[in-house]
């Protein structure tokens, strides 16, 4: 096993919010089976995909993540019976919100991965990393003042100071 190591100009930062019963165990299985997958992903383990508050994803983008990955048990397999159904509804709307805001929804990936699907985990993560790498860096909320009226205020403040 073992893949050829490639060197890229841009390494995306990817946050993964995963369910502890399925996806985290799946990723664990991938690790104990010594499978290779992209090291760009930073995982956060949560009790259920229903626990993934859109706030987490907003915060991740705000703090400079280039992609966000969300994953949980397959429908019908939730440890808490229905958490992933709520997650599904929430993400349907959240993706549209991000799209309207101007963030490419390709940067948010949702996937069902069970504890036995270590191979799916590696495939999905590799493909997603590749996709985000092509999209490039997420537009930053830098400090540059763009609004003409705000510029006017800032200039006036500087002059009077």
């Amino acid at each position: 096993m073992g893949k050829k190591i490639e060197i890229h100009d841009f390494e995306p930062k990817i946050m993964a919010f995963v369910c502890k019963w399925c996806t985290y165990s799946g990723a664990d299985l991938a690790g104990t089976s010594r499978m290779d997958y992209s090291p760009n992903v930073r995982m956060i383990r949560l009790p259920c995909s229903g626990r993934i508050d859109p706030q987490f994803m907003i915060k991740a983008f705000e703090q400079g993540a280039d992609g966000v990955f969300i994953s949980g048990c397959h429908p019908g397999d939730c440890h808490y019976n229905e958490g992933n159904y709520y997650a599904r509804r929430r993400n349907t709307t959240f993706r549209q919100l991000m799209d309207f805001h101007g963030i490419d929804i390709e940067r948010i990936e949702f996937s069902w991965i069970s504890a036995a699907e270590a191979i799916k985990w590696t495939e999905v993560i590799d493909a997603f990393t590749e996709k985000v790498r092509e999209l490039g860096r997420h537009p930053q909320y830098d400090d540059e003042v763009v609004d003409p009226y705000a510029q006017f205020l800032v200039q006036n403040k500087q002059e009077s100071a």
Binding site: G76, Y85, Y86, R88, R89, T92, R95, E109
Partner: peptide, 30 residues
């Protein structure tokens, strides 16, 4: 579009994000 829910018209209907259907759309899920 997704849940044919219009807020503010019914005293009983549940808010769409606190309920679910097993066959909700999941075309975005890999």
């Amino acid at each position: 579009e997704s849940y044919s829910y219009k807020p503010g018209y019914s005293l009983e209907d549940k808010h769409p994000l606190i309920t679910y259907k097993v066959d909700d759309r999941e075309d975005f899920i890999k």
